[in-house]
């Protein structure tokens, strides 16, 4: 039997309805953006193969329904996740406010082994739009307060930062996956410093 098992990373995208979860997923996997997506009902996923540290892994990215009413469905899909991507719309403050509840809900439903160190990544989507309402600083502070989760400002429409964000997601998910693995091939937990290179127009020194 193969000694090096193929790695499947399960990534869950969460966030309010209409923040662009489906678009982000499709932009990353298919390099496409269309404004034809309907509201996601149930769940869908796409897979993509990526190289992470010279290792070929397959990301299974799960896109879920955005209305919190559907959270009860979560448990079926969240189980076995390796990374959770929280998305908010930088033009919609409410979507930012609900991040806490998404995060909590995920931790409850997925019940990962080590909830404190479970990898989350925060994406602030739709930065291409003019009417921005969630300041970058605010998002960064929030991300920093939650175990220093990486924060990216993305635009699924323009493809801004999407690739970088998912690369980080893959890395962190792999770190999580291998930590769980008893053979522990990748002992180093990879933490990305959010302010060093991830955020585009970095005007904050914290």
């Amino acid at each position: 039997m193969a000694t090096r098992k193929k790695v499947l990373l399960k990534v869950i995208i969460l966030g309010d309805s209409g923040v662009g979860k489906t678009s982000l997923m499709n932009q990353y996997v298919n390099k496409k953006f269309t404004n034809q997506y309907k509201a996601t009902i149930g769940a869908d996923f796409l897979t993509k193969e990526v190289m992470v540290d010279d290792r070929l892994v397959t990301m299974q990215i799960w896109d879920t329904a955005g209305q919190e009413r559907f959270q009860s469905l979560g448990v079926a899909f969240y189980r076995g996740a390796d990374c959770c991507v929280l998305v908010h719309d930088v033009t919609a403050p409410t979507s930012f406010k609900s991040l806490d509840s998404w995060r909590d809900e995920f931790l409850i439903q997925a019940s990962p082994r080590d909830p404190d160190n479970f990898p989350f990544v925060l994406l602030g989507n739709k930065v291409d739009l003019e009417n921005r309402a969630v300041p970058q600083k605010r998002a960064m502070q929030w991300a920093a307060s939650k175990n220093n989760m990486p924060y990216f400002e993305t635009s699924a429409k323009e493809g801004i930062n999407v690739e970088q964000a998912f690369q980080t997601i893959a890395k962190n998910a792999l770190a999580q996956e291998t930590e769980v693995d008893i053979y522990n091939e990748f002992p180093d937990h990879i933490t990305i410093n959010p302010d060093s290179r991830n955020v585009r127009n970095d005007n904050c020194s914290c």
């Binding site: 403050p93 930012f96 406010k97 991040l99 969630v134 600083k137 605010r138 502070q141």
Partner: peptide
């Protein structure tokens, strides 16, 4: 600013 905005209320 960090201090003043510690809470998540935006």
């Amino acid at each position: 600013i960090l201090e003043t905005h510690e809470s998540n209320e935006v």
